[in-house]
Each structure stands twice: as C-alpha cells, then as structure tokens.
C-alpha cells in the first residue's frame, strides 16, 4: 500500500493472548514500530506510551480481552498501522511468557 501525506491513523486492537500484552509481543511491537518513520503511540487506560520505546511499553500491563489503541502519525502511517496490527495478531497466536 502506498502512503500519501501525513495522516494520523488510529485503530483499536483487542489483546487476545491469554498472557496479555506480555514482554515478547512488546519487543516485537517496538521492533516493528522502529522500522517506520511515523510516530507510533499506544494508548491504554487513558495513558499514552511511545510505541518505539520498550521501557514505555513495559508500563502497559494490558491483560487478555482488553483493548489498546494504536495511533500512528507520519508519512508511512498506513503501512505502519497495518504492520503493527499484524504483529499483535501474530504474537497473540503464540502463547508463552
């Protein structure tokens, strides 16, 4: 998908992993987010966290069935948002700590 212009995109994602949004999916999320130019933020329980910072995402203790909001702003926001949603879904498919 091509990205045109600067767009703030938001998408709510439900955490489906029985272990919640644990450390490994966080690492995968940070790694994926860091590949994009766009700013990536993750909102949970009213607080906003830098999606490219492992330290910040460690503060997101989102359990199974909770929802997080991904916010992406920048020139490659469309592809970033799609990729980040995919990363969360893939990590949800594997269960480990």
């Amino acid at each position: 998908m091509s990205d045109a212009g600067q767009n703030l995109l938001k998408r709510v994602v439900k955490i489906k992993n029985p272990n919640g949004f644990h450390m490994r999916p966080k690492a995968a999320f940070v790694e994926a987010a860091s590949r994009f130019i766009s700013d990536v933020k993750l909102v949970w329980e009213g607080q906003t966290f830098n999606g490219k910072s492992m330290f910040e995402l460690m503060l997101v203790a989102a359990p199974e069935d909770s929802e997080v909001l991904i916010e992406v702003f920048g020139p490659d926001s469309h592809s970033a948002l799609d990729e980040l949603e995919k990363v969360l879904a893939e990590e949800d498919a594997s269960i480990s700590s």
């Binding site: 919640g20 949004f21 644990h22 330290f55 460690m58 503060l59 203790a61 199974e64």
Partner: peptide, 17 residues
Amino acid sequence: QPVLHLRALETVSRVLR
C-alpha cells in the same frame, strides 16, 4: 496468574525508569 505477572513487570519497569 498472567495478570499478576504483567503487573509485576510493569511495577519493576515503572520504578526502574
């Protein structure tokens, strides 16, 4: 107790920031 586990990791990270 996955929720407790997540909370513990969050607590440690918050303090050690």
